[in-house]
Amino acid sequence: MRLHDAVPQAGSRRRKRRVGRGIAAGQGASCGFGMRGQKSRSGRSTRPGFEGGQMPLYRRIPKLKHFTVINRKYYTIINVEDLQELPAGTKVTLDSLLEAGLLTTDDGPLKVLGNGELSVALEVEATAFTAGAKAKIEAAGGSCHLVV
């Protein structure tokens, strides 16, 4: 018999601690919670992360710089300069760009960015446009349609 062999029987239970039953029980008057204070009160425990009313760490930190946005939206992006090689009057959608080979992957809804120049009139359907992209498409004689 070794010390590590001395384990309780399977299914056995340890009796519950009877607190506040006098000095002989070992957990008398204050029941092991000390004299006074927030941690000695009934219903006493504070929630995890509580810092006594001070702004807790989990609420202070995200206000600093360089924190990522939770549940951010992911877009499949394309620049106006990439649309330049399409023929005039083409209806541009995410599916048509994938078929044409201008995009290789579908990373979410289509967003058109305004980098470059455009001289071809196109009918573009996308979920989002930057202000510059919308201005360049309409200046070239095209139209922008928002798809929800």
Results as ranks from 00 to 15, higher is better:
T130G: 12
T105D: 15
P109H: 09
P48W: 00
S96D: 11
I70C: 01
P87A: 04
T104P: 00
Q38H: 10
K136W: 02
I61Y: 13
Q27V: 11
H4G: 04
E51Q: 12
P56E: 04
G26W: 12
T46A: 14
A10R: 11
G141K: 01
P48G: 00
G26C: 06
F33M: 08
L94Q: 08
F33Y: 06
G26Y: 11
T93K: 07
D5P: 00
S143K: 13
R36A: 13
E117L: 05
L94H: 06
G32Q: 03
E125M: 08
T90F: 04
T130P: 07
G108E: 05
K39N: 03
I137A: 06
G20A: 09
F33E: 02
A6D: 09
K91N: 13
F67H: 15
H145Q: 10
V112A: 02
A25D: 09
C144D: 04
G28V: 02
G28E: 10
V148I: 11
I77H: 07
A133F: 01
C144P: 04
M55S: 05
H66M: 10
Y74F: 09
M35K: 14
E51P: 08
Y74H: 15
A25M: 10
F67G: 05
R60I: 01
G37P: 01
A126I: 07
P48F: 01
A128G: 05
K65S: 12
F33P: 01
K65D: 09
L57D: 06
L103R: 10
V69C: 06
Q38M: 06
F67Y: 14
D95T: 15
M1C: 13
Q54N: 12
T76C: 09
R44W: 00
F129N: 04
R21T: 14
R44C: 00
L146H: 12
E99Q: 15
R13C: 05
T104M: 12
R15S: 14
G43K: 04
E117M: 02
R36L: 11
V120D: 02
K16Q: 07
T93Y: 10
T90Y: 04
G49V: 01
G28M: 01
V92M: 08
T90C: 04
G141A: 06
T93A: 05
L3Q: 08
V7H: 13
L113V: 03
Y75D: 05
M1R: 10
L102G: 06
I78R: 03
R72M: 09
L98P: 07
G32D: 03
L64P: 00
V19K: 10
A139W: 02
K63V: 05
S30H: 12
E85M: 15
P87D: 05
F67T: 07
G32K: 00
R14A: 12
G116Q: 03
T93D: 05
L86C: 10
G37I: 00
N79K: 03
L94R: 04
V80P: 04
I78V: 14
S96E: 13
Q38T: 10
